[in-house]
Every structure is written in C-alpha cells, then in structure tokens.
C-alpha cells in the first residue's frame, strides 16, 4: 500500500480531518461550558465563550454533593481487579476450549458466551435478591464479583478466537519437549496473546467504569458506590440542575478510561493475528 501517491493521501487526510472535527465538536461544547458559572450557563447561550472561570467553584459544588474521590477509587478498584480476574478466568477457559481434550466444546463456549446476550436489566432483581440473602448487597466484594462474572463472556469470546489461530505445531513441539498443559498455556498462549489481552482489558475496564445499572442497584452507601452512580446523584429534582458542574465531573470521571486507552494504544501493534477458517 506504499504506492499511494501524495495527492490521494492528502485528500484522505482532509476527509479524515473534517470528520475528526465533527467528532470533536461535542467536546468543545463540554469544555467551554464546564468552566462557566451556573447562572452564566443558564442565562446565556451554550455557544457563548465563558466569561468567568469557575472550575474551582464547580468542583467544590460537586464535592459537596457527592463523595467524588471515593467513587473514583472504588471504580478504579472494580475496573482493575474485576477485569484482570475476568481475563485470567476467561483465558483458562478459552485455552481449554481451543486446545485441551474436552467434550462439547461448542456447548461450553455457548454456555459462557450466553452471559453476554441477555439484557442486563433483567439481572437486577435476581442478583439483588441473591445478594440481600447472603449479605453481599452494598459491599465492595459483591460488586467486584458481579463485574468479574459479567466481563468473562466477552473476554472468552475474543481470546478463544485468538487462541484458535495459534499454530498447532507450536503446541505439538512444546509437548514433545515435555511441557505440561499449564506451562503451554503460560509460555505460549498467554505470551502470544498480549494484544488481545490488552484489547479485553481496555474494553472491559471501560465497561465496568461506565456501568450505571449494577452500581445503582447493588450499592447504597458511598463506601461501595462506583463513580457513575455517584455522578447520577448530581441530577437534581424538579428540573434544577447545575449543568457546568455536572459537565466538569463528567470530564474528570472520563480521564481514567482515556488514560488506559493511551497506554494500551501501542500494545495493539504487537499483533493480533487471528486466522479464520
């Protein structure tokens, strides 16, 4: 693809730049309005440039209303641990399904995969009932386990698709050398799967971080509440709303997911060579 000449390359750049600008526009709105004061935002137009710089006031307002830091750290905990555990469990299962001797591979795969197809809203009541019976309602560990379980199906799906493409000869020759199944899993499969693991981590961390449904239903105290549920407390009753503060909180709350994307961005280049049949 090197022979594309400079002119068409330039056209492509222009084409992309236009869309990139469109994609960025809503953020421009967010940034401009998050520094306004409440009255300035309410009485002015959304395209007016900010006259005041009320970032500190807005953040103080947010902090008065909700325990922002606690929610932030809770979500960091859920996101990092649940995603890591899910990748670990899913990779073991994916390894078993793709190269160990088990019966009914498709059955096991579909069984675990089916965890992603049911609309999550319907999980609320059964999980809530189960949790209030075993005293896991409104606990950190309770939310952590739910998030881990719900991250597994997607990770399994991606990792199986990848493991399946790892050449059988590699496995055979390792077996000849006397390597155990577990060693092969560690030293061949996991080592080669850096890119898909990074992708799973990015996607599932983002999902856990942004989850609102389970956070709202399975927690009630600031100690267990994840960030998005905390933010939802900013929504005032009866049409009152401090929009600039909410926007500011939303920006800050989105930093970790963006940060992880930037860190992992390069590791995708390690390769993701899946093959299809």
């Amino acid at each position: 693809m090197k022979s594309y000449n400079d002119r068409s390359r330039k056209n492509i750049s222009i084409f992309l730049s236009i869309f990139a600008f469109l994609w960025f526009l809503p953020f421009l709105y967010v940034v401009i309005n998050s520094v306004k004061s409440r009255k300035e935002y309410n009485l002015g137009e959304f395209w007016d440039l900010p006259k005041s710089f009320s970032i500190v006031e807005n953040f103080v307002y947010v902090n008065d209303r909700i325990d922002f830091m606690m929610g932030f750290l809770n979500s960091l905990f859920y996101g990092a641990i649940a995603t890591t555990l899910a990748i670990l469990f899913a990779s073991l299962a994916a390894y078993a399904i793709s190269s160990l001797k088990i019966k009914g591979k498709m059955f096991w795969f579909m069984l675990i995969y089916s965890g992603t197809i049911f609309p999550f809203q319907m999980y609320i009541i059964p999980i809530f009932r189960m949790y209030s019976n075993v005293d896991l309602y409104d606990t950190k560990i309770g939310l952590l386990v739910v998030y881990t379980a719900l991250c597994i199906p997607f990770c399994l799906f991606v990792l199986r698709n990848y493991f399946y493409s790892i050449p059988k000869e590699l496995v055979e020759s390792a077996k000849m050398d006397g390597a155990s199944d577990f060693k092969i899993y560690l030293s061949i499969f996991m080592r080669m799967a850096k890119a898909p693991i990074a992708a799973c981590f990015l996607f599932q961390f983002t999902w856990v971080w942004n989850d609102l449904l389970f956070g709202l239903t399975l927690s009630k105290s600031a100690e267990a509440r994840p960030i998005m549920s905390s933010l939802s407390l900013l929504n005032g009753a009866a049409g009152t709303n401090d929009v600039p503060s909410a926007l500011l909180a939303a920006i800050i709350a989105s930093i970790p997911t963006l940060f992880i994307f930037l860190i992992l961005n390069k590791s995708f280049n390690y390769g993701f060579p899946t093959t299809s049949k």
């Binding site: 990092a80 641990i81 100690e223 590791s267 390690y270």
Partner: peptide
Amino acid sequence: MMKKFIFTLLMVASISILLVACEGSSE
C-alpha cells in the same frame, strides 16, 4: 510497553486492595 502496562496494573491493584483493607464497618 507491556511492562509499563503490567506495572500500572499492579500499582492500581495494590492501591485498591489497600483501600478495601481500610474499609471499616459503617454500621
């Protein structure tokens, strides 16, 4: 890059575990 990633991960994990350990009973 991967090392950095794993390092960050471990950092986050250990901080989080610390947090849980500090969680007192709020009854």
